[in-house]
Structures are given as C-alpha cells and as structure tokens.
Write a protein that binds this DNA or RNA. Structure first.
Length: 122
DNA sequence: GCCCTGACGTGAA
DNA sequence: ATTCACGCCAGGG
C-alpha cells in the first residue's frame, strides 16, 4: 500500500512535462522530502511495469540514466526519451537543455536573460 | 533488532 | 574522469 509520501512523489513525477527530464533528488525536493532521492527510486521500482508514470523522464542528478548502459532498461529509457526529442549527449542527458528546472518561457523571454546571457548559444 | 541492499546525491581525494 | 566515504532510510532476511 502506497503511503502519502509515495503518492506525493508519484504526483510530482506525473507533472514532469513531455520532453523534459528531472532528477530523483529534485523530485524528492518537490515532494517536500529533501534528501530522499533513494525513496523516489524505490517508488519507481515499486511502480514497475504497470506504471502509468513517465519513469523515463527521471535521471540521475548528473544526467546519466540510473541503469547500467547496455541493459534492457537503459535501452528502453533511451528509446522513450528519444521519442520525445530528448537525446543523450554521450552517456548523459544535457540538463541545461532538457532539465525541468524553471519555466522555459520565462527563461527565454525575461529581460534578464537578454541582458546577462553570454554570447554562447543563440 | 541487526545487517545488507539499493532506479540517489555530494563532497573530497 | 574516477574512485571513496558518507548521509539517507524503507524493505527483506
């Protein structure tokens, strides 16, 4: 039986936008459970196959997938991410590009972004 | 209760 | 880039 912590965690995971990824720790944080990244992993493991959860949008804090590269699960996650336009830059997802951090519109359109943005990128 | 194992994170070496 | 040691703590044995 899932307890409230599990339910909150699942709710947060459901909220990850398509085409974005976020980390176990970030989910824990947003669930009001800072420092409980492992619990997030546990919840996802419990959910397993019968999950209606976008588990593939959850990666480690450094952008690597949680599974051993080459494993069945790894390939499946990579495939699902690719289907949403999220690509692996080598062994990791570029969180600055696909990370669910802030409102993308705000980031791109705020005056600050124009004033302080370095010349790299666009 | 104690020990071990994790879909983790972070800081230090 | 890689390792290591911890911190975290729910479950299983």
């Amino acid at each position: 039986m899932p307890n409230t912590d599990h339910l909150r965690i699942q709710a947060v995971i459901l909220g990850i936008p398509t085409g974005c990824v976020t980390s176990y720790g970030e989910i824990a944080h947003r669930s009001g459970l800072p420092g409980r990244a492992r619990l997030v992993g546990r919840v996802l493991r419990e959910a397993g196959e019968q999950a209606a959860l976008p588990w593939h949008r959850v990666v480690r804090a450094d952008g690597r997938l949680a599974f051993a590269s080459g494993s069945k699960a790894f390939r499946e996650q990579k495939r699902r991410l690719a289907a949403e336009g999220v690509t692996l830059n080598g062994v990791r997802v570029d969180l600055s590009l696909f990370g669910w951090q802030r409102d993308l519109d705000a980031e791109l359109w705020s005056p600050d972004a124009w004033v302080h943005a370095p010349r790299s990128g666009h």
